[in-house]
Amino acid sequence: MSAPLWPEELVSTGTEREILEAFLDCQRRQITAKVAGVSEADARQRIVPSMTTLAGLIKHLTAVERNWFQRQLAQRDPADIPGNSRGDDHSWELTPSDTLDSLIAEYDTVCEENRYIAAGFTLDDAVPSKRLGEVSLRWIYAHMIEETAQHAGHADILRELIDGATGL
């Protein structure tokens, strides 16, 4: 008996959009799975010279999600977006009130909002971008897969250093 297929495997012959959405959601799941079961102290623990922590990864990716889908794609005014929507160095900073549960809940909420925003665009739809001139939803999906996968790798390493846990 073979293992059940993962959502990204179920779209192996899907449309380009189905594949991009499934792989982004796969990386989003990997990020939250890597922090499951760690203590608040371990989630905040800095074990590398940078500000990278398990909790900080979630907070940073929430800001990056806001930046690309809400600021860039939906062209929302940053003043109308709660929380960091730049994904800059400040997006890694944890406040005393940040808990792993609250950070994951916020990340999940922002990802759900972003799925809704993206549903209103085709892959070829392009919006103005200060840095790139224009950016398409296709490019945003590819970039977010890259960004989230990169940080999922960081989370893998941090988790292994913290408690030896590997894999999902």
Rank of each mutant, 00 (worst) to 15 (best):
Q30D: 10
L61R: 09
A36G: 07
R131D: 04
T13M: 14
G87C: 04
K130M: 09
L100D: 01
V11N: 04
D88H: 02
N114W: 02
H90W: 10
A36E: 13
L123W: 09
Q72P: 01
E106W: 03
K130E: 15
T62G: 02
S12H: 13
P78V: 04
K34A: 02
T15D: 00
L137P: 07
P7C: 03
T52N: 14
M51L: 15
P82L: 14
R46F: 04
R17Q: 07
Q70P: 09
I19L: 08
H90R: 15
E65W: 00
E93T: 13
K59Q: 02
I140C: 05
I117K: 03
A41L: 13
G56Q: 06
V48I: 12
F69L: 05
S50T: 14
Y116V: 13
E18Q: 10
L132T: 14
Q27I: 03
D25W: 06
L20N: 01
L5R: 08
T13C: 12
S85Y: 06
D98Y: 04
D108Y: 00
E113C: 08
D77S: 10
V110F: 04
A22P: 07
D108F: 01
L94W: 07
I31Q: 01
G87K: 00
P78T: 04
L54M: 06
T13P: 02
Q27M: 11
L94S: 09
D25S: 13
A36K: 08
S129D: 09
T62F: 03
E16I: 02
R44I: 10
S50R: 04
E65L: 09
R29L: 06
R46S: 08
T62K: 01
A36S: 10
E134N: 14
R29K: 13
E18K: 01
A63S: 14
L132K: 12
V48D: 03
L57R: 03
